[in-house]
């Protein structure tokens, strides 16, 4: 019977797509990363240069700067998003018309194009006529005339803000799903015994949420490492190179300077970082599950 092969037949179309659109390009850029190929000089790839592209990266200050910028961005954005999402989920798990309304509108920031989010925050923080720049200046006189996006630290802050605004809703939904799956009995028993809300949250709910929070943190880390759109539309990497993340730096090397070999090497460094985190993520999850069943 050909029924035995059916499971494989069903997988084939999807596999062809995945192989052609991800595995092949990955292999191609891996090979390119060991070549010298300046697209402005030649249409054909140049000779192999060993690990020269990688070695160059290790000594180039622009690359090291982008690593630092990426680290700052990822760490702040992950911490803020996860804390806010957990807090929001705890607030929103109750029922009520206002809770439902908030839950519904929460999907909007996530559905909004990140490029557009960058554009609108750029507009709102324009020092002359931006509504947030003006509004903050009116409420806090110390903030009057602050050149928001022209200041390295503030520009990074706003970049983080756009990312937190975009991703917190998604993470809140994930957290709500996790909250719904933990049993309510212990919580109710503690409440009857007169435990305070804070004790219930920190002593009972959060310890049971460890697994979900871990998944959220790792997924958010990966999304933050990939973040690109807002750098283009909000800061353009500036002022100077203060918001030039690794993804944006690779884009510049590849598509502004057309140094394909070097860009491929950089892209593979980013891939390696993300793979390392993913593997670590899977292992953490597995050990977490073992702990849960033990």
């Amino acid at each position: 019977m050909k029924d035995r092969l059916l499971p494989y037949w069903l997988l084939i179309p999807a596999f062809i797509i995945v192989l052609a659109t991800t595995i092949y390009p990955l292999a191609y850029s891996f090979i390119t990363s060991f070549r010298d190929w300046d697209l402005t000089e030649s249409r054909r790839p140049g000779g192999f240069v060993g690990v020269e592209n990688y070695a160059y990266a290790a000594s180039e200050s622009a690359f090291l700067n982008s690593l630092w910028v990426t680290t700052v961005f990822v760490v702040t954005s992950v911490i803020l998003t996860v804390i806010l999402a957990v807090a929001l989920a705890l607030l929103l798990r109750r029922t009520g018309p206002m809770h439902t309304f908030t839950r519904i509108i929460l999907i909007l920031p996530f559905a909004m194009s990140p490029a557009l989010i960058g554009v609108s925050y750029r507009f709102m923080f324009n020092p002359e006529f931006g509504v947030l720049a003006q509004g903050l200046g009116a409420v806090f006189p110390a903030l009057q005339g602050v050149p928001w996006l022209a200041d390295p630290l503030l520009a990074m802050g706003i970049l983080v803000l756009t990312d937190v605004w975009h991703w917190t809703p998604y993470m809140t939904f994930m957290c709500l799903g996790g909250l719904a799956s933990i049993p309510r009995e212990t919580e109710e028993a503690a409440r009857i015994d007169g435990a305070s809300n804070l004790r219930i949250i920190f002593g009972i709910i959060l310890p049971q949420m460890r697994g979900v929070i871990l998944v959220m943190a790792v997924l958010k880390t990966i999304f933050a490492l990939k973040m690109f759109d807002q750098v283009v539309t909000l800061t353009g990497g500036g002022p100077g190179t203060s918001t030039e993340t690794l993804a944006y730096f690779i884009f510049n090397v590849g598509f502004r300077w057309f140094d394909m070999g070097y860009a491929s090497a950089l892209a593979w460094i980013l891939t390696a970082i993300m793979m390392f985190i993913s593997i670590w993520y899977v292992r953490m999850l597995l050990s977490e599950r073992k702990m849960a069943t033990a």
């Binding site: 995945v18 659109t21 390009p25 191609y28 990966i222 993804a247 884009f251 793979m275």
Partner: peptide
């Protein structure tokens, strides 16, 4: 796992070879 792990590949890596192709 192979399919899922492709989710963790940065888009820049994919677009470089496609641009050339």
């Amino acid at each position: 796992f192979l399919i899922l792990s492709t989710q963790f590949i940065p888009a820049v890596v994919i677009v470089l070879p496609f641009f050339l192709m």
